Computed example of a mutant assay.
Amino acid sequence: MGKFRKELVREVKREEENRKKQKKLREKFDIPKDVVIVEKTNTFKFLVNVTGGVIKTAVLIIIFLLTVIGIVSLVFPVSRNELIHQFMITMKELRNFIGI
């Protein structure tokens, strides 16, 4: 009997979710209530979504790696000195480039 109730609850949740989705779509496209709206995905939309996900994941990995490199370079004295030295050289080059 437990499985029956779980399945019944799932189906009621699906129907409620479907009802909310249909209401949003009707409001969005200004369609009467007696029409059921079916959204179909196409290859271009799928490709854009997948590419966006891949780019977001790659950016997050790069940010994480740069954060780890920054923390490690600040924790260890040898790399900290080299980082400060490199920062000073970069600032000098920027001043020369801008003309200050």
Score class of each variant (00 low, 15 high):
9 V>L: 10
38 V>Y: 06
89 I>F: 10
33 K>F: 02
19 R>I: 05
54 V>F: 11
97 F>M: 05
81 N>L: 09
55 I>S: 15
34 D>L: 07
93 E>T: 07
99 G>V: 04
5 R>K: 05
23 K>P: 00
79 S>W: 02
82 E>P: 01
15 E>P: 00
99 G>M: 05
49 N>Y: 05
87 F>K: 08
40 K>I: 08
87 F>T: 14
84 I>Q: 05
40 K>V: 08
90 T>C: 12
4 F>A: 15
97 F>V: 08
69 I>K: 02
26 R>C: 00
44 F>W: 13
50 V>C: 10
22 Q>P: 02
24 K>A: 02
28 K>Y: 10
36 V>K: 10
1 M>E: 12
7 E>A: 11
85 H>K: 13
80 R>T: 05
89 I>K: 09
84 I>P: 00
87 F>A: 10
79 S>K: 01
4 F>Q: 11
55 I>Q: 12
50 V>T: 10
79 S>R: 03
80 R>K: 15
83 L>W: 01
62 I>S: 06
59 V>C: 09
30 D>R: 12
80 R>L: 07
42 N>T: 06
90 T>R: 11
55 I>H: 09
48 V>N: 08
80 R>H: 09
8 L>K: 08
16 E>S: 15
91 M>D: 12
11 E>W: 08
71 I>N: 06
55 I>R: 13
73 S>D: 13
51 T>E: 02
71 I>E: 06
43 T>N: 09
6 K>W: 04
26 R>N: 01
69 I>H: 06
98 I>R: 03
29 F>K: 04
96 N>S: 11
95 R>H: 15
31 I>F: 05
51 T>N: 02
22 Q>E: 02
40 K>S: 08
24 K>R: 14
80 R>V: 02
70 G>T: 08
57 T>Q: 13
10 R>V: 03
17 E>G: 06
47 L>S: 07
11 E>G: 01
93 E>P: 00
42 N>M: 04
76 F>H: 13
72 V>R: 12
64 F>D: 08
11 E>H: 14
38 V>W: 04
22 Q>W: 00
